[in-house]
Computed example of a mutant assay.
Amino acid sequence: MASSKIRRPLSEIPSQMLSTISSITSLLQTLNPQHPNHPLNPNPSILNQFSPHPHFVTRVIQNQQNPYHALFFFNWASNSNPNPNNYSHSHFSYIAITNLLISRNLFSLATELLDSHNKLSDFMVGKLIKAHGDLGHIRWALHLFDRVRGKYSGRCLFSYNAILGVLVRGD
């Protein structure tokens, strides 16, 4: 799968990057990501000391146990204010956040995120279809399939494969 291409063993990651990932993860754990402006939270601008970089954004997301911390970081990284290098998320960043949200059964949140960033591609919908199917949500899987099939005029190989797998397992 694509995610295996982006997940290098820790021994291959430079120590400075590991230190940055660890620092960001520690900072994120101190925040309440659902209420970032709450007076008891540290100021989220403390993340501004870090400049988003494609290599570690994906890693930070993958290292989060709390999907809301990962989503907060994902949104912060692409915010235009603390973004001196004009960072924009890579395909792998979207895969990482989608995988994390799906693994926590946050399907609607994953779909909304992808849709709002115009990243609800055949590949990503295929992931969502499979995840819904794995939980027995066949109607939702079919709904997503119909949505992507209409959007791509039937040219949706990943979604076709995913829905076929769901229907075969659901029998």
Rank of each mutant, 00 (worst) to 15 (best):
S4I: 05
K5S: 11
K5E: 15
P9G: 09
P9D: 07
L10D: 14
L10S: 12
S11R: 07
S11Q: 07
E12F: 09
P14E: 15
P14R: 06
L18E: 03
S19F: 14
T20C: 10
I21N: 02
S23M: 06
T25P: 04
T25L: 01
S26M: 02
L27D: 13
Q29G: 01
Q29T: 07
T30F: 01
T30W: 01
P33T: 06
H35F: 07
N37V: 05
L40F: 05
N41I: 00
P42H: 08
P44S: 11
S45I: 06
L47Y: 01
L47C: 10
L47G: 07
N48G: 13
Q49R: 07
Q49C: 10
Q49N: 06
S51K: 01
S51Q: 08
P52C: 05
P52S: 06
H55D: 05
F56G: 06
I61E: 08
Q62T: 00
N63T: 12
N63H: 13
Q64E: 09
H69S: 10
L71N: 07
L71T: 01
F72P: 00
F73K: 02
F74I: 11
W76Q: 06
A77L: 03
A77V: 05
S80Y: 00
N81S: 08
N81Q: 09
N83C: 10
N83S: 06
N86H: 07
Y87K: 04
Y87G: 05
S88K: 08
S90V: 04
S90P: 02
Y94C: 13
Y94Q: 09
Y94M: 14
I95W: 03
A96F: 00
N99L: 04
L101W: 10
R104Q: 13
L106W: 09
S108G: 04
L109V: 07
E112P: 00
L114Y: 08
H117P: 06
H117S: 11
N118H: 06
L120G: 03
S121L: 08
D122L: 11
F123C: 11
F123P: 04
V125H: 04
G126I: 03
G126H: 02
A131T: 09
H132C: 12
L135N: 14
G136K: 04
I138E: 07
I138S: 09
I138N: 04
W140A: 13
A141I: 08
L144H: 10
F145P: 00
K151V: 05
K151E: 14
K151W: 11
Y152D: 15
G154K: 11
R155W: 14
L157Q: 14
F158K: 15
F158C: 15
Y160V: 05
N161T: 15
L164F: 14
G165W: 14
G165V: 11
G165P: 00
G165I: 13
G165C: 12
V168L: 14
R169M: 07
G170N: 15
